[in-house]
Design a binder for these strands. Structure first.
Ligand SMILES: [Mn+2]
Ligand SMILES: [Mn+2]
Length: 604
DNA sequence: GTTGTTC
DNA sequence: GAACAACAACGCGGC
DNA sequence: GCCGCG
């Protein structure tokens, strides 16, 4: 059997137009044509793997339009960033480059061109909208099209990284160059620039002056608007299951919003996220097998959180962070967005330490205290002088986008210092962490919290309580910023030692494991300068995505199951609450008084 | 998860 | 663009 | 000084 001819023109002799035509389309036999098609099919595997053709209107490339085999197209593509996709037909596919600034008619203006995956030939006529969330989501216009003629063998040229050719399009003409930059060194890029000939022009910005589609004479904006209309009408005609679902959520969201005449769009997004969370919980039921199947609404949660006004990009929203519950990063983002209003008053401007698990809670997790380059801009910093003398940039957040920024980093736990950024050397939040030994019953822990509360009250300090996401409780008290860390910790140690001394069978203030057997460790060490504690409303990187949850003393007296507070249940709980469980904590105006020191037998 | 290096 | 590697905390108490 | 702890 005869081998199929590879189009080849030799290095020196320029091919005739006829030779070019015949090189890609069958002057030989049907077998070669078929093989070329199969080859093209293989080249398009990547293109297809990146797209879901049920969702996008882009062609799948299973039908090749008949042409002369030397077409080119430039598609103006308003995606995340506006760019121009430069495509040359070769061997049954479109070689493609993404040119951020588009072509220039000036031979001295070299434009960066990044090679992208080969596209099918029928892509050349695609103009319209690629749905958001799909690869390359955005609006596409056919900015120019026509034919191209390589100067030499294009296969050799591609291999060498020097392609010289002539364009005969509607906007672009004459000689052009595509040159690969140094293969080693920085990233491999190409440069697209005009050859020196009559079609060159130093004075015209072709991209500015000819912005429209050469096919429909529409601008990008007009194409997007037209596509909107088509989408609207097709939606009425034939709603898909997903659209029906979205409509249901939107309707429920509207009804809820109408109740309180809420015109804040962000609040509405929050509400929709809550509704989606609720639906997700119902869909999951209470089954928690080793790996839960993705919940029905995971996809719609991703769509919702993408609407949050953040100022940075969310990525990998479908990544599963808690496999047992099937909780995705999108659901974590939704959780933070919903609890932000309750959480931020406590978290605002405190230095942070994070527990990050970007690959999920079972994979490599790590602590992070310093800000890293590339962090979302909604994460702010605070410069703190370490005792060693060196200065470290800690992280802090001020608002919902900041909180979601932490989620974007794959943060499963947020730990905070007991001070604020503007006065780091003055602690303002006291925490007694009640850690029960493994065999201690929950009721004893609850009673311990009341004991701590009673004793603090006697010292003139009101306190609030939260679960930790584990088997313990945190008794918390805001304190005026009068004393330094050393004295602060000294006071809390005195307090813990006193309880332990008076009830040695119940409590210990000694961190060592041996001392804690059968007892509750009153952990005052959270009150040191370099110590942190789990933030209110922070999830934990543990099975079930439990949440450190502020509760009222009444609830604690009534009985609560600390592990029932999870990223799935806390948003529902908050929606039902009439007032903040920590109501009044912002207005507390209390300090460690001289009388308090004396009551514990300490020196004021 | 992000950045930097390398092809 | 893709594949790959490096990197992301540390102080304090107990004995 | 090392280990455990969070
Ligand atoms: Mn593109
Ligand atoms: Mn503890």
């Amino acid at each position: 059997m005869k081998a199929c001819a590879t189009p080849s023109f030799g290095a020196s002799s320029r091919p005739s137009p006829r030779a070019l035509r015949e090189s890609t389309r069958g002057t030989e036999d049907a077998r070669c044509g078929l093989m070329a098609r199969r080859a093209a099919t293989g080249k398009l595997a990547k293109y297809r793997s990146m797209r879901d053709f049920k969702v996008t209107a882009e062609p799948s490339g299973d039908r090749s339009p008949r042409g002369k085999g030397n077409s080119f197209v430039i598609q103006k593509h308003a995606a995340r960033r506006l760019h121009y996709d430069f495509r040359l037909e070769l061997d049954g596919v479109l070689l493609s480059w993404s040119v951020p600034k588009g072509p220039s008619l000036s031979p001295t203006e070299k434009r960066l061109a990044v090679r992208t995956e080969d596209h099918p030939l029928d892509y050349a006529s695609f103009e319209g909208v690629i749905p958001q969330g799909q690869y390359g989501g955005g609006t596409v216009a056919v900015w120019d099209r026509g034919t191209w003629q390589p100067e030499d063998d294009p296969h050799e040229a591609m291999k060498k990284g020097r392609l010289t050719f002539t364009l005969d399009g509607e906007k672009l003409h004459g000689k052009w160059h595509l040159v690969r930059t140094r293969p080693q060194g920085k990233q491999e890029g190409w440069l697209l620039f005009k050859g020196r000939d009559d079609a060159a022009n130093e004075n015209v910005d072709i991209v500015e002056e000819e912005p429209r589609s050469v096919v429909t004479n529409r601008t990008i904006d007009q194409i997007a608007a037209d596509s909107d209309r088509v989408w609207q009408s097709s939606k009425v005609a034939e709603p898909t299951a997903m659209e029906k679902r979205a409509a249901r959520i939107a309707k429920a969201g509207k009804a809820a919003a109408n109740e309180e005449r809420d015109t804040n769009p962000r609040k509405n997004i929050h509400r929709n996220i809550q509704l989606a969370n609720e639906a997700a919980k119902k869909a999951r039921g209470k089954k928690t097998e080793p790996a839960a199947p993705p919940s029905a609404s995971a996809a719609s949660v991703a769509a919702l959180v993408r609407q949050l006004p953040l100022g940075f990009q969310l990525t990998n929203l479908d990544k599963v962070l808690y496999p047992e519950q099937g909780i995705t990063k999108a659901q974590l983002v939704a959780y933070f967005a919903v609890v932000a209003d309750w959480m931020m008053p406590q978290l605002h401007d405190r230095p942070l330490t994070l527990v990050r698990c970007p690959e999920g809670r079972h994979k490599q997790c790590f602590f992070q205290k310093k800000i890293l380059p590339g962090s979302p801009k909604s994460i702010h910093t605070v410069e703190i002088e370490e005792e060693s003398g060196e200065s470290v940039e800690y992280m802090r957040v001020k608002d919902m986008p900041g909180l979601v920024g932490l989620a974007q980093l794959g943060t499963l736990e947020i730990h905070t210092w007991g001070c604020h950024a503007d006065k780091v050397e003055r602690p303002d939040f006291m925490v007694f962490d009640l850690d029960p030994a493994p065999d201690v019953e929950w009721d004893r822990v609850a009673l311990a919290a009341f004991e701590v509360r009673k004793r603090l009250n006697k010292l003139g300090i009101a306190s609030w309580v939260k679960t930790t996401g584990g088997k313990g409780l945190h008794v918390c008290a805001p304190i005026k910023r009068t004393i330094d860390w050393e004295r602060f910790k000294e006071f809390t140690k005195l307090f813990a030692d006193t309880i332990a001394a008076e009830h040695p069978k119940q409590y210990t203030s000694n961190i060592s494991k041996a001392a804690r057997k059968g007892k509750i460790f009153v952990d005052y060490l959270r009150n040191g300068r370099n110590a942190t504690f789990i933030a209110p409303y922070s999830p934990r990187a543990r099975e079930g995505a439990p949440v450190a949850t502020p509760i009222t003393w009444e609830e604690l007296a009534h009985g609560v199951d600390p592990l029932s507070f999870t990223t799935a249940t806390v948003p529902l709980r908050l929606a039902k609450l009439k007032k903040d469980p920590w109501h009044g904590i912002e207005d507390a105006d209390q300090a460690i008084t001289a009388a308090a020191w004396r009551a514990l037998g300490g020196k004021p």
